[in-house]
Simulated scan of single mutants.
Amino acid sequence: MRRVTVWYDGACPLCIREIALMRRLDCRDAVSFIDISVPAASCPLDRQLMLSRFHASVNGDIYTGAAAFAAMWRVIPVLRPIGHLARIPAVLRILEALYIQFLKIRPHIRKRFKPAD
């Protein structure tokens, strides 16, 4: 079984919820989740770059954006079909275009998920 490493922003309430869902769906424990909001966390790339986009690694290859999501989905049984569908270049291009649009509105969505002070 392939293992996937995912780096995420543990200071982002939206990201925390998404990662919590992925952990629940990862019934085979195939994904290692690394919170890079913690200064001691190891980052294979520039930390700010990794905080700005989703990154995942499979067998030493690092993916970003929609390709990173697809890599993670392929090892989570319930999401595997979507991950395999994303291997089709046209589908991956569409998913990446949607991801780029999401990144534009992410700061506004993030505000909605901020914990109450």
Rank of each mutant, 00 (worst) to 15 (best):
Val91Asn: 07
Phe69Pro: 01
Cys43His: 03
Ala11Arg: 06
Ala56Val: 03
Met1Thr: 10
Ile16Met: 03
Ala30Tyr: 05
Leu95His: 02
Arg47Leu: 12
Leu49Glu: 15
Ile105His: 07
Ile34Thr: 11
Ile36Arg: 01
Arg23Gly: 04
Met1Leu: 10
Arg112Gln: 13
Met50His: 10
Asp9His: 06
Val75Gln: 06
Val6Tyr: 09
Pro77His: 09
Phe102Ile: 08
Asp9Met: 06
Ala71Cys: 14
Ile36Thr: 04
Asp46Cys: 13
Ala40Arg: 13
Glu18Met: 13
Arg17Cys: 02
Leu79Pro: 03
Pro39His: 02
Gly83Glu: 05
Asp46Arg: 09
Arg106Ile: 02
Val6Lys: 06
Pro39Tyr: 00
Asp46Thr: 11
Pro13Thr: 02
Pro77Tyr: 05
Asp117Phe: 01
Cys27Ala: 09
Cys15Phe: 02
Ile94Val: 15
Ile36Leu: 09
Ser37Phe: 10
Val58Asn: 00
Asp46Gly: 14
His84Asp: 11
Ile82Gly: 01
Leu95Arg: 01
Arg74Gly: 08
Thr64Tyr: 07
Ile105Ala: 13
Arg110Ala: 02
Ala86Ser: 10
Val78Tyr: 02
Pro89Leu: 14
Met50Asn: 09
Arg47Val: 10
Val58Gln: 05
Thr5Lys: 14
Gly60Glu: 08
Ala71Arg: 10
Ala67Leu: 06
His108Cys: 08
Ala71Lys: 10
Val75Lys: 00
Glu18Val: 15
Phe54Gly: 00
Arg28His: 09
Ile88Cys: 11
Cys43Ser: 11
Met22Lys: 02
Arg112Leu: 15
Val91Thr: 11
Leu92Thr: 01
